[in-house]
């Protein structure tokens, strides 16, 4: 059996460095989406700043050994954000950068909805409302075994409509799982439109707080604010942590930001160059 490298992914809390990582993630997202011609590019761009903070400022992982038993776990509940996760996994060196070109292709490991068979993908999300239930079990299991690893679950505003999310919110609070952080992405867009029209969830931060969670709400593109929120989560004991992040779908590409319907984006072949130009201009 070959010995996997125990080298940890280097972390930084320098906002400039994190901003550079976020730009890289967005470039990876555009590269994947352009090859397919369509996809959840709005989500991938919108969550890039948050993922840059999670992967490069917080998460304790070994890129060469993604199954390391003491690793921090990042659970993607919203499987269709896979495009964003793959960008982070490639940037972190967990999957090869070149593999991003296979995104969504027949036979690829990088399926449009992220499957757990891909290295670095902890669970199969996509059936919404699952991630937090498993995150609670992981946090209980790690604590029972005396491991101090942390568990992060990225879920969406729409997922706050799933009953299972609140079953798990009760359990995490009941068991005082302070190594568990739920990141609630409020991009104000679900399949059938904005949550306020589909099924209102606001005031969503108050709901998490009422369930007993240490709750913060920050601009999901304000890197110093995100770094501070994650630092507060890391150092506040006794309760699970909810970080509600307000994000803009398609962030970094003006043409995508301004689309009214951007849950699943189709882009003409000629327009990708424009998207890349807009991203570089925004940075």
């Amino acid at each position: 059996m070959s010995q996997l490298s125990a080298e940890l992914l280097p972390l930084t809390r320098d906002p400039v460095a994190i901003r550079g990582r976020a730009l890289s993630l967005r470039r990876h997202v555009l590269r994947m989406a352009e090859i397919v011609g369509q996809g959840y590019v709005g989500q991938g761009l919108g969550i890039a700043d948050v993922l840059a903070v999670v992967y490069f400022a917080e998460l304790r992982t070994r890129p060469a050994d993604p199954g390391w038993s003491d690793r921090d776990r990042f659970l993607l509940s919203i499987g269709h954000y896979g495009i964003g996760l793959y960008a982070a996994l490639a940037e972190a060196g967990i999957i090869p950068l070149a593999e991003l070109d296979t995104y969504g292709a027949d036979g690829s490991r990088l399926e449009m909805s992220a499957p757990e068979t891909t290295p670095g993908v902890e669970i199969t999300g996509g059936s919404l409302g699952h991630g937090l239930t498993q995150a609670v079990g992981m946090a209980l299991g790690l604590r029972l075994q005396g491991r101090d690893a942390r568990v992060f679950n990225l879920l969406s505003d729409g997922e706050c409509q799933e009953g299972s999310t609140w079953e798990s919110a009760l359990a995490a609070s009941h068991y005082g799982l302070d190594r568990l952080t739920a990141i609630v992405d409020c991009n104000n867009q679900q399949a059938d439109g904005p949550p306020a029209r589909v099924m209102g969830i606001e005031p969503v931060a108050d709901k998490w707080a009422a369930f007993g969670w240490h709750t913060q709400r920050v601009d999901g593109h304000d890197i110093p604010a995100l770094l501070a929120a994650f630092a507060a989560a890391r150092t506040t004991p006794g309760r699970p942590h909810a970080i509600v992040v307000d994000t803009l779908m398609g962030r970094g590409v003006r043409a995508f930001e301004e689309r009214e319907k951007n849950h699943f984006i189709r882009v003409d072949a000629d327009d990708w160059a424009l998207a890349r130009d807009q991203l570089e201009a925004s940075s």
């Binding site: 669970i123 239930t133 498993q134 079990g137 209980l140 299991g141 798990s168």
Partner: peptide
Amino acid sequence: GAACGLAR
């Protein structure tokens, strides 16, 4: 869900 997480 929690049982699955514990198993993992």
